[in-house]
């Protein structure tokens, strides 16, 4: 088993883990973390699959670099929305809303 295969496997497992976590947890912060874990798994897959002999390939690496920055901005925006939601409803999950 080569190192790249190992990291690709890790990426696959992280995807599965994040997927299950995203659907099973109800606290929004945990959902966000699960989603980020799934994203990290995807990034590992994207870079790992492109360099089977572990010689660096700049194209997927550049894509993942932009991906990480966008993921962080999305996380920050999600946190702003989450806190606003908490202000309005006093809840940290999505069951029910201020209207009911």
């Amino acid at each position: 088993m080569t190192p790249v295969q190992l990291y690709v496997l890790a990426g696959v497992l992280l995807c599965g883990l994040g997927f299950a976590g995203f659907l099973l947890t109800s606290h929004l912060l945990r959902k966000l973390m699960a989603f980020n874990i799934m994203g990290s798994g995807t990034f590992l897959l994207l870079v790992g699959l492109a360099q089977p002999n572990n010689t660096p390939d700049p194209v997927p690496q550049a894509l993942v670099l932009t991906g990480i920055v966008v993921a962080l901005a999305a996380t920050a925006l999600a946190l702003v929305l989450m806190r606003r939601w908490y202000h309005l409803s006093g809840r940290t999950d999505l069951q029910g809303g201020p209207g009911d």
Binding site: A10, L44, V47, Q61, I68, V69
Partner: peptide, 17 residues
């Protein structure tokens, strides 16, 4: 992990972000 995958640029960004 990024360092091990020969991607120091991503490693820098990941450590900071």
């Amino acid at each position: 992990a990024w360092v091990r995958l020969q991607a120091p640029d991503i490693a820098l960004a990941e450590a900071a972000l």
